[in-house]
Design a protein around this nucleic acid. Structure first.
Lengths: 146, 146
DNA sequence: TGGCAAGCTTTAGCCTGCTAATAATTGTTT
DNA sequence: AAACAATTATTAGCAGGCTAAAGCTTGCCA
């Protein structure tokens, strides 16, 4: 291999790693009795930190597309974790709020997620993190034209 | 942030990066008139390099699950790119082969994929690649118990 | 003011990822 | 040899990612 990019390895490695992370999260959720998918958690996490956020902004922050946000919110509403309120200023928008049950879920799940994050990072250090961020951002930027 | 793992940043960054890569690949496929999804390409790539491979092995190599491999192969067979042949030694297995049309597709698409790999890696160097591999493998290993 | 473009959300349709269950075949064990 | 376990692939069902198109609402502009 003359240059790293000649191998499919780096696409594959990223793909494999994120799959692993998602699997571990989901399994831990299931073991813990959380009736929640990883992506449902991602939305809850963002809503908890941005009560009243619009679906649009939610989509931007999570890099999910609008239809996906709609569907995940449908499920969360059905579970009673989240509420859509018509925006006062702009009737095209919904403001999304956690219901009491959603707040409870957030507070219950967050420590578990944090623990998994720590476990995944393991003994990697600040310098590794700097490398990681620099490399991932670089790849992203190299595709910024798209 | 006292420790990198306290932030959701690294899960998110990996997720965002792989999404970006997939989007770029798919758009370039579409622009180039390839009637092919990224995951269909991944299977073609592996079959091209391992003619006669079983679906099971294909699943392992691509870290896809068996049902997904079944469905993607169904599509590739329908497109006439790939062929399932019953295994002689073990009638539970299929051996997968590229059809002439599939070989043509492989040879046409490969240069485009290579170009995108190079573009994504940009001016990152061998040392960066070593960091990248070490960090991603480390994360994966930290979850190896699962 | 009336019309038209732009923005927010939803719907529909396809593809992929995951689990659980099933069918068919092979391997093992007694 | 017969029963049982393991392996390979498929089917079904739910969830999420993507695009395209539609319905409302808002903003702009003539």
């Amino acid at each position: 291999m003359t240059h790293p990019s000649d191998s499919r390895a780096y696409f594959f490695k990223i793909d494999t790693t994120i799959k692993k992370i998602r699997n571990v999260l989901q399994k831990r959720f299931n073991e813990s009795g959380f009736d929640l998918t990883v992506d449902q958690w991602v939305l809850i996490d963002h809503v908890a930190r941005n009560q009243g956020i619009s679906q649009n902004t939610l989509a931007e922050l999570t890099t999910k597309d609008a239809p996906t946000v709609t569907r995940i919110l449908d499920l969360l509403v059905k579970k009673g974790l989240v509420e859509r309120r018509m925006s006062e200023e702009d009737r095209r928008k919904f403001n999304i709020y956690l219901q009491p049950e959603g707040i409870k879920t957030f507070e219950t799940v967050l420590p578990v997620v944090k623990e998994i994050r720590r476990q995944g990072w393991g003994s990697l250090n600040e310098e590794d993190y700097a490398h990681f961020v620099r490399i991932m951002d670089s790849i992203y930027q190299n595709f910024s034209e798209y």
